Simulated scan of single mutants.
Amino acid sequence: MDKIRFKQAQSLLLESGKSKKGTEKLKNPREGTLDPVAYAEIINQVIGTEEFVYSSRPTHKLLPEDAKEFCSNLIDIRNKIDDILAEFGVLEKKNIEEEVKRLSEKFIILTSKGNFKKIITRWGVEAQRIVVAGVPLETEDMRVLNPKIPETALEPVKKKISHVKNDIIRKMDQFDTQEMLVVVENDKSGEIMAKRAENLYGARVMIRDNLKNTSILEFRKALEKEYNP
Rank of each mutant, 00 (worst) to 15 (best):
F107Y: 15
P58S: 11
V37D: 11
A194V: 07
F88N: 02
E99N: 12
I96F: 00
T214N: 03
P150Y: 06
K3W: 05
G190I: 07
A67E: 13
A127P: 05
Q8I: 08
L217C: 01
K25A: 11
V90I: 15
D82L: 07
Y201N: 04
K27L: 13
I192W: 00
T23E: 12
C71T: 14
A203T: 03
M193Q: 04
F88E: 00
E69W: 03
A40T: 14
K117I: 04
D173C: 09
R204C: 10
T152C: 01
P29L: 10
K68Y: 09
K18V: 11
F116H: 04
S55M: 14
K94W: 05
V46C: 05
E138W: 04
P150W: 00
S11E: 15
L217R: 12
T152E: 15
F88C: 06
L62I: 09
N166D: 14
E151L: 12
A38H: 00
S11K: 12
K27E: 11
T177M: 06
G124D: 03
K113C: 08
A40V: 06
E218R: 10
K18F: 12
M193H: 02
L63A: 14
R5M: 12
E218D: 15
S162V: 02
T33L: 10
I149N: 02
I119M: 14
R129V: 04
I119W: 01
A67N: 11
E92I: 04
K94H: 11
S72A: 10
R122Y: 01
E224V: 04
A40F: 08
L217H: 13
L12A: 14
K165H: 12
S16C: 11
Y201L: 09
K61G: 05
I108M: 05
Q8W: 03
I108C: 02
I149R: 03
A86E: 13
E179A: 13
S189E: 13
M180N: 01
P29H: 08
N228M: 14
E50F: 13
F116I: 12
E15K: 14
N28Y: 06
E226S: 15
C71K: 12
I84H: 00
L145S: 05
E218Y: 10
Y54T: 13
E41G: 06
E185G: 07
K159C: 00
G114Y: 04
E51R: 15
S11Q: 14
S72P: 00
K212V: 13
I108Y: 00
P136A: 09
Y201R: 06
L13K: 02
F175P: 02
S189R: 12
D2G: 14
V182R: 01
E15H: 09
